[in-house]
Design a protein around this nucleic acid. Structure first.
Lengths: 219, 219
DNA sequence: ACCTGAACACCGTTCAAGT
DNA sequence: ACCTGAACACCGTTCAAGT
């Protein structure tokens, strides 16, 4: 996996190595020392090409966002704004499915990367062409939140406990939740489909919001 | 701020000191050493009351969630499910406005705290009483995401750049975004209202989803 | 111009030792 | 039972020094 140690370091090489490292071993594995090791260099050498670790993290967000922009650029426009936006967002989501650590990182960034800005710029264009006022688009971006970028980091996953054994004592404290989970399990015994499930839920939420926005557009 | 160093340490004291520390100096200030100092003890003493730092973080999530549950318990039910759910969520949000660091932390937790589970349990109850099937409630929780808990951590804040100067070269790359921001600024010169603005956007997104769910309920 | 070794100030955590 | 000092393995980062 380590690329040959002879080729000189560049900011680009550092950032791509960081993405690869996060892909393979998770974000916590991305330390300056480990990253340098991966590149066949010393940790201190990185500082010649990168200001500090924050700079690396900003950088890999930008790399992922560029990957999204490239994927989205290949898309044909849909028959209407809603389909076009939907396709773009689901395509962006595919990139995040390849970089599972990325949503959590995106959420920690305060300044927005240029590539992310470009992504939103194009989305604003799609909505504006679809007949939305700029004011409505502004609301729409807030309503969509991170969903516009293709992910919704769930703080509570109802599915998580679905298969796990729930102790009786705990179950007694959570009658409604347990009732819900039991009924869902009964309705569809094969409902634990891994990320396919999440995909369905993501699309449900997305379509709900897009439909709501569509209704507002005509008023 | 440091509580008297004579009173013995307990898990509770440690967790409440951690919340106070985060409130005052942000989450990064919560280190085991700093936390011990705040309690008039040594870092190593904490380990007698707490397994590890992760345990502290899980613990303060639970403390905040308990605060939410207490606030929400004082609420009178609304005239319908939608008002009831809305009030609960906006009340939960008020707690997060007192603990600005909490949304980011909630997002990093993988296992869900008991207090959070109880919060969701009550919300499931509200929706079920409102006439939703458990299956629909399950979808609704996913659609709401963290909004059900009272926050929506924006990865891109359109307002952030509204007041800042945008260099001409950058503006040329982001025609739609700049166009949107210019028009909004024009429509309402006083639109930079700090968190009040966010509040309005949060409610817009929330109401959009609740309305969408209400429509589904009758079908 | 690019890379490095030694060093500094900070982490979380273990463990034997104190009371 | 509760607390601590010394120590370990790890961070990010600076800075003077190498080529």
């Amino acid at each position: 996996m380590t690329t040959d140690a002879r080729t000189p370091l560049t900011r680009e090489r550092v950032l791509h190595a960081a993405v690869a490292l996060a892909d393979e071993h998770g974000l916590p594995a991305v330390t300056m020392r480990r990253l340098a090791e991966e590149l066949g260099a010393e940790a201190m050498s990185l500082y010649y090409h990168v200001a500090k670790k924050e700079d690396v993290l900003d950088g890999i967000v930008d790399v992922v966002a560029q990957e999204i922009n490239e994927a989205v650029a290949r898309l044909a426009p849909g028959p209407d704004w809603r389909q076009t936006a939907r396709r773009r967002i689901l395509t962006a989501r595919e990139v995040f499915l390849r970089h599972r650590w990325a949503p959590a990182l995106f959420e920690t960034r305060s300044s927005t990367s240029l590539a992310v800005l470009k992504y939103y710029d194009a989305l604003v264009g799609v909505l504006h062409d679809g007949g939305f006022t700029h004011d409505r688009i502004h609301h729409a971006l807030h309503a969509l939140g991170s969903r516009a970028l293709g992910f919704s980091h769930e703080v509570f996953d109802p599915n998580a406990g679905a298969s796990a054994e729930i102790p009786a004592e705990l179950a007694a404290q959570l009658p409604n939740l347990v009732g819900m989970l039991r009924e869902i399990a009964h309705d569809d015994p094969d409902s634990t489909l891994g990320w396919c499930d999440d995909q369905a839920e993501f699309e449900f939420g997305l379509d709900l919001i897009l439909a709501g926005l569509d209704l507002l557009r005509d008023r």
